[in-house]
Write a protein that binds this DNA or RNA. Structure first.
Length: 663
DNA sequence: CAATTCTTGAA
DNA sequence: TCAAGAATT
């Protein structure tokens, strides 16, 4: 085979501009652009309907751009990306693979495996940073350790001794490898029942990298100036609307950063303080996205467990009716309900409202936060595991710089500050449309004649509050007391040396998932059925494809726990392993300043891969294993709450207990 | 003018 | 809750 035919493996970098992997491929000669659709690899995080809709559009636009440049996107349907890469390599004789880094736990493991397996097969593999201003391992404190609060992290990012890579132009031309030897699979992203709902999306959104650039330009030259004063408004089009574009890598975050910074300098020179401040705030939200990758890299389990270990003892309320009421927008709190209706209808929510609904979910309903996160994952157009995990952890009080654990936001008060005239509520809750502003955020206080005039019958066509704020406060206090008590008990056990560690919540029987997560707006919401569960939560399933996967699994109820861990709920290398990772010097590729992911120096992580010893034989055979094994098997040995403790102990200067305990 | 109360917003 | 800044006395 001739040298120089390389594969550019597209994933969440669906752009031709400022795409280092593509640029490297083009530089090295003939290019085959490949996209592999292997959603089963994501386990529970099988992409939701709207997210798949976006991906479909985005790929089709990427393909037209590639065709203009001289090649065609090869698409493959797979359950194992790495074997599909090998197949493509074998059929085309490619000698090199280029791809851009991802930082979610599943990708970290999968990409590492790809590197190992392909290198063994004589393929030169190179990977690049295309998703971040700085790689996670570049941003460290003075002792060389990762930051644990966002503001310290972001301060350092803004003061790094070198600037982020400037964005690169798209290639002028791509010399295509031999496409005839590698036919594409037709990828199916939606089923018939989804198609109808998706049709509406196209009215509001234009996926694809060139549209992403348009959205960026529109934002930089328009709403950016007033980003700061407008950030409180739930209802106006004042955000950048870049998040889904950024999720799929349709626009490079460095380009966004450079353009915003350029504007900022311009405004600073004009003495435009407000504009300068707006850019700071906008960049901060870009910074949060960076931080979510940073967290995911440094704490790969953060999408499924609280970072602060004591949350393990929080007695979540497991009530499917609560959960359903929240999803349907029938909690009786207009701002929350409006948000949930908008989310369902459009796949979109303003950041403020995301905070309102998720805070309500965790603090008022006290439902397990991972359920809420999973629902966001299934319904958001910009669903992003790293960002959403960070957001939910922030709301749940499980990060050192989270909101206070005992803080309950009041949707009534938030309502009057984010939606002072009630327009947002009226738009999404037509049943309240005729209620005067005075009562729009607390209809339960409205006099009977007002309700009558507005055509509202509380408890009938609009619900009474599912839980009162006062009841929620009392219940939260009780739960926190319980949590700290349990935590102290557990600490005492460790100090007595009777047990190895804090144990793991997965030893307990898991909380069953709600089976029915469909929208049934007319279903009566049953109240007074509050059951407390003192165990860790499992993620509920939503998509039909997930149901299918689970039904495949024959399991007795005693196998449930293993199911949770082996079947797709990918467990990842833990903190220790990653710190191991960080200790390694960052390697640089010879051909430039692009850094590569440090080698995963771990055996456990890949225990399940083809070439590893049959260590996993002890567990029940899981779908993962049958599929060839992509994701590491979770085991208490490599992932436990004692890790979370070490997270705390590394920062003794912070009084952790006080930070999140009630005063 | 400084002291003190109020308001706002928080990754 | 609490710190910072605005407003008030």
């Amino acid at each position: 085979m001739t040298s120089g035919c390389s594969i550019v493996w597209f994933r969440r970098d669906l752009r031709v501009e400022d795409n280092p992997a593509l640029a490297a491929g083009v530089r090295s000669g003939k290019v085959l652009a490949v996209f592999i659709w292997a959603p089963e690899e994501e386990g529970h995080y099988y992409p939701g309907r709207v997210s798949r809709w976006w991906l479909k559009q985005s790929l089709s636009l990427l393909n037209s751009s590639l065709q203009n440049l001289g090649t065609t996107l090869i698409t493959k349907r797979s359950t194992d990306s790495v074997s599909s890469l090998l197949d493509v390599i074998k059929s085309t004789g490619a000698t090199q693979l280029f791809f851009n880094h991802l930082y979610d736990p599943i990708s970290l493991v999968r990409d590492h495996r790809a590197k190992e397996v392909l290198t063994e097969n004589g393929i030169a593999v190179r990977s690049f940073n295309a998703d971040l201003l700085y790689e996670p391992w570049e941003v460290l404190d003075d002792e060389g350790r990762p930051f644990v609060t966002f503001s310290s992290f972001w301060d350092r990012c803004l003061k790094m001794p070198y600037d982020p890579q400037p964005p690169q132009l798209p290639p002028k031309r791509i010399i295509s490898g031999d496409l005839s030897r590698c036919p594409s699979d037709t990828l199916v992203f939606e089923n018939d029942s989804e198609r109808g709902s998706n049709a509406l999306l196209a009215r509001a959104w234009s996926p694809g990298w060139s549209n992403a650039n348009k959205a960026l330009t529109t934002f930089i030259n328009g709403p950016l100036l007033d980003y700061s004063p407008n950030r409180k408004k739930a209802d106006s089009a004042t955000t950048s609307f870049l998040s889904p574009h950024l999720h799929f890598g349709e626009v490079s975050v460095r380009k966004v950063f450079h353009q915003a910074r350029t504007k900022q300098i311009l405004w600073a020179n004009e003495g435009n303080k407000a504009g300068e401040e707006s850019v700071n705030l906008f960049l901060k939200s870009i910074g949060l996205r960076e931080y979510s990758r940073y967290m995911s890299f440094n704490h790969p389990y953060s999408h499924e467990r609280p970072l602060l270990g004591h949350l393990k003892f929080f007695p979540w309320v497991v009530d499917e009716n609560y959960f359903k009421a929240w999803r349907q927008g029938r909690t009786g709190y207009p701002l929350v309900d409006a948000g949930m209706r908008e989310l369902w209808a459009t796949g979109w929510l303003h950041d403020r409202i995301r905070v309102v609904v998720s805070s309500f979910f965790v603090k008022v309903l006290q439902l397990p936060w991972r359920w809420g996160m999973k629902y966001f994952w299934d319904t958001l157009l910009d669903a992003d595991l790293e960002s959403d995990a960070l957001g939910w952890q922030y709301i749940s009080g499980t990060l050192p710089d989270s909101r206070e654990l005992d803080r309950i936001d009041n949707p009534q008060i938030d309502g009057y500050s984010f939606d002072p005239n009630g327009e947002y509520v009226r738009r999404w809750l037509p049943e309240l449309a005729r209620l005067p502003t005075e009562w729009i955020h607390h209809p339960w206080n409205a006099p009977e004649y007002v309700l009558q005039a507005a055509g509202i019958e509380l408890g009938s066509n609009y619900p009474l509050p599912i839980v009162t704020i006062n009841a929620a406060k009392a219940r939260l206090q009780e739960a926190l007391t319980h949590m700290w008590q349990q935590e102290a008990n557990s600490r005492a056990i460790i100090e007595n040396g009777t047990e190895e560690g804090l144990g793991d919540s997965s030893e307990d029987p898991p909380i069953a998932f709600p089976q029915d997560m469909q929208m049934e707006l007319d279903q009566e919401i049953v109240r007074n059925r509050t059951i407390r569960h003192y165990e860790d939560q499992m993620v509920p399933s939503l998509t039909t494809s997930l149901f299918r996967v689970e039904e495949d699994e024959e399991e007795s109820s005693s196998d449930n726990r293993n199911l949770a861990h082996d079947n797709g709920r990918a467990e990842v290398p833990n903190d220790v392993l990653n710190r191991e990772l960080l200790r390694e010097p960052v390697r640089r590729e010879d051909f430039g300043a692009q850094s590569v992911l440090p080698q995963f120096n771990i055996q456990i992580a890949l225990r399940n891969s083809d070439d590893s010893p049959a260590e996993s034989s002890s567990g029940p055979t899981s779908r993962r294993e049958r599929d060839g094994g992509v994701v590491p098997v979770w085991s208490p040995a490599n992932s436990s709450y004692s890790e979370d403790n070490s997270y705390l102990q590394r920062y003794p200067q912070i009084n952790w207990r006080q930070l999140s305990q009630t005063g």
